[in-house]
């Protein structure tokens, strides 16, 4: 009871400082974890952007029209279980239909060619889009009936760079916030333990054990951790999704970020509580005992 009373001394003498420091540390821990979660969530987006490609397999001009379906089936089989989002055979007329939306004049001119000339100008091709492994292009090239092949593997290179930059920013912000929150917590707890260092050192002089004299520091850290942890949980629960919804509107690149998990609130609270308690034990262990200037002391 006496030790608990000592632990509460900083709260009695500077309640506002304790409260606002705990609120600040809790919000900072919550934001740090949110930023960390963002960086983790951006990783699959980056992976998708860097590995998604469109492969255009031009069919051999000599290939008979009745064999086109066979080539498409062979390509489909060759892709196996890879993540194919689209696979289609594009003939001259389908190509013109695609072109017509943006270039109606060109489409009209191409239609005017007609017959064998049209087939010579517009090659038939199989367009395959999805996330593929590195050897897929060679696999499709080896299919009988495929002439030449093109891939858009580097098309998203600039996008990948942008997402990587955003991801690094989130990591830096996360680390900086976590560091700042840890420093605030350690400083407050150190300040707290100094407030009862006189009592603790005298208790040690009366034969109080080391573990017992660390109890006020432990309580003080835990009290701070409970308040900061509750703040972290509350700010995650009420603020994380709101913040992320705004972040998603910033760029289509981050629009794919998933919903914030509700369990993050419990995680933020637990981490913050642990850091508070640890800092209390740490500060209690190194609490400055009363020492005479320049003298060697037992305590």
């Amino acid at each position: 009871m006496h030790l608990l009373k000592l632990a509460f001394r900083p709260w009695r003498t500077s309640a506002f400082m304790q409260t606002f420091s705990a609120l600040g540390a809790g919000a900072a821990f919550s934001s740090a974890i949110l930023m960390g979660w963002c960086s983790l969530s951006l990783e699959p987006v980056m992976h998708r952007l860097s590995s998604e490609q469109v492969i255009t397999a031009y069919l051999d001009p000599e290939l008979a029209q009745e064999d086109e379906g066979k080539v498409v089936d062979t390509i489909r089989t060759a892709l196996g279980s890879q993540a194919v989002s689209d696979l289609k055979l594009v003939r001259a007329l389908e190509f013109i239909a695609q072109v017509r939306q943006e270039h109606p004049d060109l489409a009209e001119q191409l239609e005017g060619l007609g017959g064998a000339e049209l087939d010579a100008v517009i090659p038939r091709y199989v367009s395959v889009s999805g996330t593929f492994s590195t050897g897929t292009v060679d696999t499709i090239r080896a299919v009988k009936g495929v002439g030449s092949i093109e891939t858009s593997v580097h098309k998203a290179a600039s996008l990948v760079g942008s997402v990587a930059a955003i991801r690094w920013i989130t990591i830096l912000v996360s680390v900086a916030l976590a560091f700042a929150a840890c420093i605030v917590t350690f400083q407050v707890i150190k300040f707290n333990t100094q407030q009862f260092a006189d009592a603790v050192s005298f208790m040690e002089l009366m034969g109080g054990g080391g573990a017992r004299s660390r109890v006020p520091g432990f309580f003080s850290g835990t009290l701070f951790g409970v308040l900061a942890g509750a703040t972290a949980a509350a700010s995650w629960y009420f603020g994380a999704d709101y913040l992320l919804s705004h972040l998603r509107t910033l760029s289509p690149l981050v629009s794919e970020l998933p919903q914030v998990p509700a369990t993050g609130a419990a995680f933020a609270a637990a981490i913050t509580l642990l850091i508070g308690t640890f800092s209390g034990v740490w500060a209690g262990a190194f609490s400055p005992a009363r020492r005479s200037a320049g003298g060697r002391a037992w305590l």
């Binding site: 006496h2 009373k5 006189d198 009592a199 005298f202 002089l205 009366m206 034969g207 109080g208 054990g209």
Partner: peptide
């Protein structure tokens, strides 16, 4: 050392009471 301290009743010159107790 802890046991020795428990056997001593020490009255320091500067008293060192815990002010809020």
């Amino acid at each position: 050392l802890q046991a020795i301290r428990q056997s001593i009743g020490y009255v320091p010159q500067e008293v060192r009471l815990i002010s809020d107790f």
